[in-house]
Computed example of a mutant assay.
Amino acid sequence: MRIITGDDIRSVCSWPMAVEALRAGHLLAPADLRDSLVENAGRKMLVRTAWIAGLASGVKAVTIYPDNPGANPPLPSVQGQVLLFDEARGDVVAVLEGVDLTAWKTAGDSALGSSCLSRPDIRTMLMVGAGSMARPLIDAHRSVRPSLERVLVWNRNQARAENLVQALADDGITAEAVTDLDAAVSRADLISSATMSTEPLIHGAALKPGAHVDLVGAYTPSMREADDAALTRGRLFVDSLATTVGHIGEVMIPLASGAITKADIQGDMHDLVQGKAGRRSDDEITVFKNGGGAHLDVMIAHAVTKAVAAR
């Protein structure tokens, strides 16, 4: 059994590697998934399991403490570990640092969705939220869409947005902190949102033709980041029906109100990767809900473990 640290993960991972691991995993049969979520005073513990026949099985256990980034010193809001099991023998192959793996998995998932759905000539990205996932999402999206020339950043705390913009500028990326979210949405070819919001931030009326919307933040039944108009103006896709429908407010709330129906979900990541669904024209708006799932962690963990062993 290998113990794989965050440093190990960073030493072998790249965005092309992560995206390709997820793409290859979605050429296999859908995973068998089970989740458990418990809450205490706004804090959460999430345990996700997945079995991917022909690849591997695994468990990810994480805690989610929203107040941690404001601690002194700051702590990650998400902490945990991933257990990777050999699919044939059933033994534990590796224990991997969950925080680092989650970033690669989550942003890689969104980047793979963008590679299937966003226009290849997009120029402007809007990052909604400047938390721990913002930079990985920006880097992952830029890796699959090198045409991106400018990054706009909006955050409720303007100072955090400006700090992220400065970090991007230090790395030679043209970036701008914005305060008018609707105006920024109307400028963006790609909108990626990673917040803890329970009220819609992205208004469909502001979306321009041809935009791609990547919704990452919502992960509980009460959370959502885009309004009904965004989902009805755009064609809606999800990474996994099993982890979004019936689990996440982004989809559950408009389904319950009748704003959308299950038939409005145009496909999942298996459909996108296998060419069964996708963008149909340059002018249509596409919306992708990144719901996550342990199957994605297993795909990335399997690729990382192989890379570490080869090294």
Rank of each mutant, 00 (worst) to 15 (best):
M1A: 10
M1I: 07
I9S: 00
C13N: 03
V19E: 06
V19F: 02
E20P: 04
A21C: 00
R34W: 07
L37A: 08
N40W: 06
L46R: 09
T49S: 12
T49V: 10
A50T: 13
V59I: 13
T63H: 11
L75N: 14
L83S: 10
L84H: 08
L96S: 07
T102G: 10
A103K: 03
K105H: 10
D109E: 09
M125A: 10
L126W: 12
G129Y: 11
M133V: 13
D139G: 03
A140C: 03
H141M: 08
R145E: 02
R145K: 14
V153W: 04
W154V: 10
R156Q: 05
N163K: 15
L164S: 08
A167Q: 13
A167S: 11
L168K: 02
T174A: 13
A175N: 04
V178I: 14
L181A: 00
L181C: 03
P200V: 04
H203I: 09
G204V: 01
A206G: 14
K208T: 02
H212T: 09
P221G: 02
E225L: 10
A230I: 09
R235F: 11
V238D: 05
S240W: 09
T244D: 08
H247C: 12
G249P: 00
E250F: 07
P254V: 00
G267F: 07
D271S: 02
S281W: 07
E284N: 08
T286H: 11
F288V: 13
G291I: 03
G293N: 12
H295A: 12
V298L: 01
T305N: 11
A307G: 05
V308H: 09
A310D: 12
